[in-house]
């Protein structure tokens, strides 16, 4: 029977690739018997969901912005690029 350390690794691996039948079985068996690892597994699942949500949601709410200086610089680069193209 795998210990909690090994199970934590196995569960992390399950988020990256499909487990083999044997691995799945050991994981399931351990989780059935071990409340601490069940909690851990739930936390990693949540972490994954939250990270995905972060992309769609937190980004629009955070106050971080491009500085005016950078914005101007990018605008200049873009428009000079546009002028060059239309000149060709």
């Amino acid at each position: 029977m795998l210990n909690c350390r090994q199970i934590s690794r196995l569960f992390s691996r399950s988020q990256d690739r499909p487990l083999t039948f044997k691995e799945k079985l050991s994981l399931r068996l351990h989780l059935m018997l071990c409340g601490a690892c069940r909690r851990f597994a739930g936390q990693l699942r949540f972490l994954r969901q939250a990270t995905v949500l972060m992309e769609t949601r937190a980004f629009t709410e955070e106050p971080v912005k491009l500085s005016e200086c950078a914005r101007e610089r990018i605008k200049r680069t873009l428009s000079s690029c546009g002028n060059n193209e239309s000149a060709v």
């Binding site: 210990n3 350390r5 934590s8 601490a36 909690r39 936390q43 949540f46």
Partner: peptide
């Protein structure tokens, strides 16, 4: 794996994950 502060030598949790 560098998880010596998280797991004991026997591979048990040093402190159980808390309920979130």
């Amino acid at each position: 794996y560098g998880m010596n502060d998280v797991f004991t030598d026997e591979g048990r949790w040093v402190s159980r994950p808390s309920a979130w």
